[in-house]
Computed example of a mutant assay.
Amino acid sequence: MLKGTRTWIRPLDPEDLDSLYDWYNDPEFSYYTSGNWPLATLLRREEIERRFYDEDPNRYAITDLEGRLIGTIGFDQVNIPARSARLFIGIGDKLLWGKGYGSDALRTFIRYLFRQWNFHRLTVETWKRNERAVACYEKLGFVTEGILRDAYYVDGEYEDAILLGLLRQDFSMEKSCP
């Protein structure tokens, strides 16, 4: 397990499935994690279990310090020669949004990926109006590297995607999370 200032990161457990089901079928959670509701949601428990436990080996649980599940974090699109990957995160407990839990989990996970996996570069992607996510990424040192025009379809309108990147040398490994 990885310990942050406010969070723990651990492997997903079968007991997490009920919370994952609730979060990924919640319109507001899905709106901010992907900009898609209901197209990316309305998933059956079996679909979530298959995706998160069988097909997605690099997805982990985020808990508060008491061990209560509050979200998920992970990485994909690994490029071994370039030592890069794409990160993703979602805090499912809406009462904890904007309180620093996501930043803490990301900082902890980024430190782990740079130190243990020896990644050189990490990227994240979100849609333009997801201002809370963009602010969180920028606070951790990510910089906007590109825009994908009309890459998301949100509320009946096309939205630009923002691509942000973080290089190992630009990340403070020792800086504690606020």
Rank of each mutant, 00 (worst) to 15 (best):
F88N: 15
R115C: 09
I89F: 11
N118S: 13
I73N: 02
P81D: 10
D104R: 01
I70Q: 05
A105V: 11
K99E: 09
G71T: 13
L106N: 03
Y101D: 06
Q116F: 01
G102E: 08
I89S: 01
Q116Y: 04
G100T: 01
I80Y: 08
P81Q: 10
F75A: 02
T72H: 11
L87S: 04
R68G: 02
H120P: 00
I110Y: 12
A85W: 13
L69R: 01
W117G: 09
F109K: 02
I70S: 05
A82G: 00
W117A: 14
A105Q: 06
R86E: 15
D93L: 07
F114R: 08
A85L: 12
P81L: 12
Q77I: 02
A85V: 12
G98F: 00
R107Y: 05
K99V: 03
Y112V: 03
F88P: 05
G100Y: 01
R83F: 11
N118F: 06
A105L: 07
R107C: 02
F88C: 09
G71Y: 07
D104A: 04
I89V: 15
R83E: 09
A85T: 10
I70G: 05
A82N: 13
R68M: 06
P81S: 09
D76L: 11
D93M: 05
N118V: 04
G100I: 01
D93K: 14
K99N: 06
I73G: 04
I91S: 07
T108C: 11
K94Y: 05
H120E: 03
L106E: 04
S84Y: 07
R83P: 00
F88M: 12
W97T: 03
Q77T: 07
G71R: 11
Y112A: 05
F114G: 12
K99T: 13
N118E: 14
L106Q: 07
R111H: 14
D76R: 15
D76F: 15
S103C: 04
R107A: 14
I91Y: 12
N79L: 14
D76V: 02
A82D: 09
N79K: 14
F119S: 01
Y112M: 10
G98Q: 04
T72V: 15
K94A: 09
P81R: 14
F119W: 06
L106S: 01
I110D: 05
T72P: 00
I80Q: 08
F114M: 07
A82Q: 11
K94Q: 15
